[in-house]
């Protein structure tokens, strides 16, 4: 088991170095740090001096490692727009995105698993079929369209919920939270549903098909033959075996929640890192793009690693078999 963990760690570090390389290439060669700092009217001599001072004439590997070193110290340079340090920008925006992503992930996992189990157990039932057909539309509906339609219904027509922003936030140290105010929580509802709906349908369909698969297995039939109640069979035998792959996929989906947060944040003008990133793309703000890529890369690698470890923790077969390798 330790071997596996170390191998995974090694892979993760490798991926991180590659992501850092891409970030660096974007940072160094797509953007031009000198233009950024000096503006067009600087003389050639001034530019050359700055290039030397920034280390742009150093060998490639040296520049790369200084980039990684700076990144490890949370130094990503300054944004082209407003000239603020990128790390400050990201730090001030991160809480909003994390709160949104977590809320919608929990929403998607909770309702996805419940409806998945329901549609598997009540296979062919009236309500189950309705849920299934609706989910098909859900898969085809682009995230931004869900958001726009929700705004239209709940913000414009019914006026129940706010259509943009985070509402009032409470500052806890450097972390700003919307969980502690009523307007903050109300503002969170529509974006979370928008962001979570696709994952919800995905998790539901996965749970359902896994559950149906597991219910065909001999150990479930055996449990039934032994006279266990359908509750015991469904929830103690079928469900845990269903959840192993579901948890894995759901964990990996956290990554795509972070990515689709960009879309949701744009629709709802949610002040998170996604909105920061899309504006950076729009205005070709290279340092912000490069830092965002690095941030997301680290996040994804951590999520993947965590899911792998979780998988090891859930399944006793893996726990033992790996030690004998």
């Amino acid at each position: 088991m330790l071997v596996i963990i170390f191998r995974r760690l090694g892979q993760s570090v490798l991926v991180l170095f590659l992501v850092a390389l891409i970030s660096f290439l974007i940072f160094r060669y797509v953007g031009n740090p000198v233009d950024n700092l000096m503006g067009q009217e600087a003389t050639l001599a001034q530019r050359a001096a700055l290039e030397e001072a920034l280390g742009l004439n150093d060998p490639f590997y040296k520049q790369y490692f200084s980039f990684v070193w700076n990144a490890l110290n949370f130094d990503f340079g300054n944004s082209y727009r407003g000239a603020l340090p990128v790390s400050d920008l990201i730090a001030s925006r991160l809480p909003a995105t994390i709160e949104l992503a977590l809320t919608s992930a929990i929403f998607a996992l909770f309702f996805g698993v419940i409806t998945g189990i329901y549609t598997a157990i009540r296979r062919g039932g009236y309500l189950a079929n309705i849920i299934l057909s609706t989910s098909l539309i859900g898969v085809s509906l682009p995230t931004f369209l869900i958001g726009v339609l929700l705004i239209w219904l709940f913000a414009v027509e019914l006026k129940w919920l706010p259509s943009f922003g985070r509402g009032d936030v409470v500052q806890l140290g450097w972390w700003s939270t919307g969980f502690l105010t009523l307007s903050g929580i109300k503002s969170l509802i529509l974006p979370s549903i928008t962001l979570g709906l696709y994952q919800l349908t995905l998790i539901m369909r996965l749970t359902r098909s896994e559950m149906l698969e597991v219910m065909r297995q001999d150990y479930v039939r055996f449990a039934k033959a032994l006279g266990l109640s359908s509750k015991q069979v469904n929830y103690k035998h079928a469900l845990p075996n269903t959840l192993v792959p579901v948890v894995t996929i759901a964990g990996l989906q956290l990554g795509s929640i972070v990515a689709f947060a960009i879309v949701t944040e744009t629709v709802f003008q949610w002040p998170g890192v996604g909105l920061l990133f899309i504006n950076a793309v729009y205005f070709v703000d290279i340092p912000v793009m490069s830092a965002y890529l690095l941030l997301v890369g680290v996040l994804f690698v951590i999520i993947n690693l965590f899911v792998d470890l979780l998988y090891l923790a859930i399944d006793p077969r893996l726990r033992d078999s790996n030690s004998s390798e």
Binding site: Q217, D218, Y219, R221, F222, A223, K224, A225, L226, G227, L228, Q232, K236, H237, P240, N241, V244, I314, D315, P316, R317
Partner: peptide, 30 residues
Amino acid sequence: VRGHEISMIFQDPLMSLNPLRKIGDQLVET
């Protein structure tokens, strides 16, 4: 009648036991 009157043994013992639960738990539960 399942279990306490009529019970059943399946072909493949590798597939008949819930892989995620200790055999003791499965026995005690039954």
